[in-house]
Amino acid sequence: MHAAAGTSASPADSPAPAAPIVVLAVVVALAKLAHVLGPAVPAVVYALVFGIVAGYGARRAGHHNLSLPYEVPLTAGFVMMGAQVDASVFGLVGWRGLASVALLWVAVVSAFWLAARLRLLPSRLAGLLALGLSGCGVSAVVAVSRQDPDSRGAPQTVATLVILLSGAAALLAYPVLGAHLDASTFGTFTGLTVANNAEAIATASTRENPAQLIAAAYKVVVNAFEGLAIVLYLWLFAPRRGARRTKLALPKVPGFVIGFALVAGVTLLGAFNEAERATLGSLTQWAFFIALVGVGFRTRLDQLVPAARPALLGLVLWALTAALVLAALLYL
């Protein structure tokens, strides 16, 4: 045994048990500091970019086995998100709004299902894109990886990238394209078709009231159905081992979905006041921020180069479904 081996970690060395937590805490702190200094860019972008850079640095230093423990904050964040479910927003959105959410889901799932059937997209990636772009965003894409190991790595990274790019595209294009829409329709369109909460609210805030309020209400409604969307994804795209795809077996409901439903249930029963819900919302954002740093850490940009074509196709399909939703809002 050489003395040098004890001072510098070789690729075969396993890191100290506390090392992943320390690395995660440092990268999260740096990403948060960057967001505080540059709040114009959404927090999720800082989380992903800092995670990717830290992961690249760790692998360059030979720590190939280092992975950050992001699953606990992710699942805890998902459970706490149940506190954001509010009965009043269902009233604001109304039955027409719920029908619009259903239309969006049908359009997005059909588009990506067709793309997978025509072999334009790998089926796993098509499923993740349908899940994320149905309005559930990055949190749902990250959440399903626990139950569906095949979605980890490149499919998850590409889907996350497409969702972030679609949000950036909406932030730039919607204020111009939607200049002639009234504020209410603009808020509905934004809340429905921009997958991530932060980008949806930011896009809606480019218009006068009640655009932002309505966009936020749609995001809450879609988030309330996120558990259902995840179960649907697992049923359609992650068949149980040994089960035939055509066999209609009941999907296994993940524990975090049950936790989310329970917290949503007690919230609807009035367990939390406004201040407590705001605090839990803030904690949820923190939890997803930490989880995204972990996702970025294990993202390998070299895996993304071959994915440029499917990522572009995902963006085109998202734009088409957004156009369909806009047409339905204007003419139905």
């Binding site: 606990v72 805890a76 524990g255 975090f256 936790g259 407590e276 605090t279």
Partner: peptide
């Protein structure tokens, strides 16, 4: 274990919010 730890963490945080400690 991960699921159990996550649920415990979520419940603990919710409890801390309820008693006003996180404020």
């Amino acid at each position: 274990a991960t699921e159990f730890a996550s649920t415990l963490l979520a419940l603990a945080l919710i409890a801390l919010v309820k008693i006003g400690l996180l404020n």
